[in-house]
Simulated scan of single mutants.
Amino acid sequence: PAQQNENLNVVKIVKLALDIFNEKYIHFIADEEEIIAKLDRTQLIRVITNLVKNAIQAVPEVESPRILVSVVSHGDKVKISVADNGIGIQDGFKDKVFEPKFTTKSSGMGLGLGMVKNIVETYNGSINFTSQPGKGTVFTVMFPKEAKN
């Protein structure tokens, strides 16, 4: 679908994207009430929901699961992080995480992160993660606030 780039309040849209989840252990923080970036609203929501779904699937065996989603202004970029205290990503899988169809789960297609990466890179953004098996994972997405033409 064609991108509908508009000036969005990323803080508000991320909050909105989190509304579809009922898990009480999902927390949201932002350092400002408004961080504007030129993005496609649907694509941004898709990025957030995918990252949060992955985080939810990482925490089922954890005693007190916790997912923290944050939106921070970072110079001319906006930084969105999704952190969980779940099972983490094994070293052997780390370079495969963004491959289409890669999944460690029994259900689903494994398209999530590949698609997320495509969306992010369309905006000249970046996505990366740090993970410690047994401790959790943090995915960080950076979007430029101004779209490059």
Rank of each mutant, 00 (worst) to 15 (best):
P1G: 09
A2R: 10
A2H: 13
Q3W: 03
Q4H: 09
E6C: 09
E6F: 06
N7D: 14
N9M: 12
V10D: 04
V10S: 12
V10W: 08
V11D: 05
V11Y: 04
K12I: 07
V14L: 05
K15R: 14
A17W: 05
A17Q: 10
L18R: 01
L18Y: 00
D19G: 09
D19M: 14
N22E: 15
N22K: 15
E23N: 11
K24I: 12
K24H: 03
Y25F: 13
Y25H: 11
Y25V: 07
Y25W: 12
H27D: 04
H27C: 07
F28K: 07
F28C: 07
I29A: 11
A30H: 03
D31F: 12
E32N: 15
L39N: 08
R41T: 02
T42K: 00
T42E: 14
L44Q: 02
I45C: 06
V47S: 03
I48Y: 00
T49D: 00
V52N: 00
N54Y: 10
N54A: 02
I56Y: 04
A58L: 06
A58Q: 11
V59G: 10
V62C: 02
E63Q: 13
E63Y: 06
S64T: 14
S64F: 08
L68W: 01
L68M: 12
V71I: 02
V72I: 15
S73K: 05
S73F: 09
H74M: 03
H74C: 09
G75A: 11
G75W: 00
D76E: 15
K77Y: 05
V78Y: 13
V78K: 01
K79G: 01
I80N: 03
S81Y: 04
V82D: 14
D84E: 11
N85S: 02
N85A: 08
N85V: 04
G86L: 10
G86F: 05
I87V: 10
I87Q: 13
G88T: 07
D91A: 10
D91H: 09
G92P: 00
G92E: 00
F93R: 04
K94G: 15
K94N: 15
F98A: 03
E99R: 09
P100G: 06
P100S: 12
K101S: 11
K101I: 01
T103N: 08
T104A: 12
K105R: 14
K105D: 14
G108I: 00
G108W: 05
G110W: 09
L113A: 08
G114E: 01
V116N: 00
V116C: 04
V116P: 00
N118C: 06
I119Y: 04
I119F: 03
I119K: 07
E121A: 02
E121G: 02
N124P: 04
S126W: 02
S126T: 14
N128G: 15
T130C: 04
Q132T: 15
P133I: 07
G134P: 03
K135M: 11
G136N: 10
T137G: 06
T137S: 05
T137M: 09
V138W: 05
V138R: 00
F139C: 01
F139S: 06
F139E: 05
T140A: 06
M142F: 11
K145N: 07
E146P: 01
A147K: 15
